[in-house]
Simulated assay, not measured.
Amino acid sequence: MADVEGAWTRVSGEAVNWLNELDPEHCYSGFEPPRRPDAAWLLHAMYVWQDGLVTTTHDDVYRTFRAAGLAETGPGGEPEVGELLEGSVVTGTELGRSGHPGEGWRRLRWAELARGFGEPVVPEGEAPGNRCLRQAHPTGSWSAAIEPPAEGCLDRESWHRLMALLARHSPDGADTVCLAYYCPLVTADWDDNTVLSGRLMDAPELYDHPEMSSCPSNLWAADRSWVVYCDWDLWGTKVVGPVALIEAMLADPGLECLRLPWTS
Results as ranks from 00 to 15, higher is better:
L206H: 09
H209Y: 07
E211C: 01
E211F: 06
C215D: 01
C215T: 11
S217M: 14
L219P: 15
W220V: 01
W220K: 14
A222M: 01
A222I: 03
A222V: 10
D223I: 04
D223K: 03
S225C: 08
S225D: 08
W226R: 03
W226D: 00
W226F: 10
V227N: 08
V227I: 06
Y229L: 05
Y229T: 10
Y229R: 07
Y229W: 04
C230H: 05
W232Q: 09
D233M: 11
D233T: 06
D233L: 00
D233E: 13
L234P: 09
L234C: 15
W235Y: 04
G236W: 01
T237I: 05
T237S: 06
K238S: 03
K238T: 05
K238H: 01
K238R: 11
V239G: 13
V239D: 06
G241E: 06
V243K: 14
V243A: 15
A244E: 14
L245C: 11
L245K: 07
I246G: 10
E247I: 02
E247H: 11
A248T: 13
M249Q: 09
A251P: 12
A251T: 11
A251R: 10
D252H: 07
D252Q: 02
D252I: 05
P253M: 08
E256F: 03
E256D: 13
C257E: 00
L258Y: 00
L258T: 00
L260A: 12
L260K: 10
P261I: 11
P261S: 14
T263N: 14
T263G: 13
T263Y: 11
S264M: 12
